[in-house]
Design a protein around this nucleic acid. Structure first.
Lengths: 193, 193
DNA sequence: GTCTATAGAAAGATAGAC
DNA sequence: GTCTATCTTTCTATAGAC
């Protein structure tokens, strides 16, 4: 057996990472299987040993992003919970996230892209959105009285803010939008510094 | 001269209307020139007498949508200004807008689609976004103390809410998101009924 | 499992008749 | 200005060697 099971798993994982990176920045149609495979140091032909179609790769890539969210990772021990969450919100609605984050948020970058794809992809996106909201809600409850509806609306504002900021030229307009969303998000959650 | 100038203008206008309709629902890549021309009762070959490329059509289609916004139209005389605006916000964040509006909002439906296109298209989108915000801000000032930053954040929430709602299956989850955004938008603007 | 080669389809853009 | 016909490129997906 020239290729072990774990080798296949590793290859598949590399393909998924490349897919997340490329799909998130360039969307479904502007990303080719060739590019994903090249980014994973493979060639086109190897693709179908791992996924049955480009759509399947897209759906799985989106589903796989949940684990990269800072919300799913343990925070550093020397920051208190509130400070940590405020930091996450500020970083999310920051020009660096919009312009050149290493791992930008697919919920913001792919919002309208996903709406055009097959049901499996939309369900993957919806699943990530719902789980993020649940974690966000569970977290905020520790130090704020904001209810679940408020958290969901704030999430929409954050995602919308980043998505729109991406369409604006870098500079004043974009920064102004992000700043407005930052302020209002923190105010709605009652966690203003 | 077998074709008058006004005939060309009318044809061009029909093409733009078809482009708005198709691009908004299906994005740039999933809409072909063929489909736009067929919708305008023309054939492929006639396209390049009016636009020099598909990208140019996309940019002009987006720019042309400003005049369809309810914000740019006179409101009916028998509703007061506050009631009218609250009605617009409720209709925007409504499942009918998401599922089957005749003229859905391109800002929400194309947010991440535009980010992938050429500078002219992004500037067209940014121009519509900024003008909508200006009108929204001028309007709200008449009966609310919400400042411009708040209005801009509310706009991001409305656009984000509709964009995300589109990715969710019709039903409870989608309606819950829209309702949360409706409530928080009205609360932020201080125009709760 | 991964490679090279290629089939097959879709769609943007152009040519030339009317 | 609008039509039909076509060139050309791109890319998904498959075939077959190793």
């Amino acid at each position: 057996m020239p290729y072990s099971k774990s080798h296949k798993q590793q290859t598949r994982q590399r393909m998924l990472m490349s897919a997340v990176k490329l799909f998130t920045r360039r969307g479904f149609d502007n990303t080719s299987i060739d590019e994903v495979m090249a980014d994973a140091d493979l060639t086109r032909g190897a693709f179908y040993a791992h996924f049955k179609s480009k759509q399947e790769l897209y759906a799985e890539a989106i589903a796989s992003t949940l684990v990269f969210s800072p919300l799913t990772r343990p925070r550093e021990a020397d920051v208190d919970e509130k400070t940590w969450l405020v930091g996450l919100i500020n970083a999310y609605l920051h020009r660096k996230h919009v312009a050149d984050a290493e791992m930008p948020c697919p919920l913001a970058f792919l919002a309208t892209d996903v709406a055009l794809q097959d049901p499996a992809s939309r369900q993957a996106y919806a699943g990530v959105f719902k789980k993020m909201n649940k974690m966000f809600q569970a977290y905020i409850r520790k130090f704020s009285s904001a209810d679940n509806e408020t958290v969901m609306a704030v999430t929409a504002m954050m995602i919308g803010g980043v998505a729109i900021a991406r369409t604006l030229d870098e500079g004043a307009g974009r920064n102004q939008l992000l700043k407005s969303c930052r302020q209002q998000a923190l105010a709605l959650l009652g966690v203003q510094e």
